[in-house]
Design a protein around this nucleic acid. Structure first.
Lengths: 111, 111
DNA sequence: ATCTTACTTCCATGAATTTAGAAATAGCCT
DNA sequence: AGGCTATTTCTAAATTCATGGAAGTAAGAT
């Protein structure tokens, strides 16, 4: 993980529609969801959805797998955990002394 | 934290230049850095830097404080920790059973 | 008052993003 | 082969973003 990859992934997630698509896939779990199922969920024209999915796939946040005429989409958890790790390293940089023993996320969320 | 705020903040960080600016501020610690110091560090024309800073400030990821003729910029840690918390909830949704006891970031990063 | 330093806002321009209809493609079924 | 389903790619218009010079503003020094 480096700054360039992180920024590209953040950009891919930095759109309300795409973040919603991504969340749908995370919530779908390991089984994933077909493009059609996502479409039913988010209610977008097929081509628009396809473009958004492409952005997420390009940044390795989502993976597609064919099953007959359908394409099943999966959230790529390792990519997200790596991204969160990168951000945590950034955000925790100055709070290391305070939060070192714990998970920085849990303490300071309610500021 | 909700999807709209998260996506806006992700968008603000989803640009290599801005992520670098933000990282500079995190690394600067509690004391922050003046706009001029950031400019020396990232090497951008003043107006371009100012635009990028504005994006970060608009999303409450950075705060400015005047000190004489200088403006000191600070990374807003609580905003970042809240954002990471949101993403963790998303990314860990399906891995709760596996990673519940630990920090999901540490396990699955190397996939 | 005016000069200097430190930034921001105004303005313009090219590039990229978002959106979506229409056409094309992939795979299955008959 | 032809048709059906599922989804992508082509194409294009509208919008937003990134960039940076020039002009404006805020605060302190002389």
């Amino acid at each position: 993980m480096n700054l360039e990859i992180a920024s590209r992934q953040l950009e891919a997630l930095g759109n309300q529609t795409r973040l919603e698509i991504y969340r749908t896939l995370v919530r779908a779990g390991t089984g994933g969801r077909t493009v059609g199922q996502i479409q039913d969920h988010v209610g977008l024209p097929a081509s628009t959805l396809s473009h958004h999915l492409k952005r997420l796939i390009d940044q390795r946040l989502v993976r597609q797998e064919r099953s007959g005429t359908s394409l099943i989409c999966h959230a790529e958890y390792p990519a997200m955990t790596a991204l969160i790790g990168f951000l945590s390293d950034e955000c925790c940089a100055d709070q290391t002394l305070t939060y070192r023993t714990g998970d920085c996320r849990k303490e300071a969320t309610d500021g």
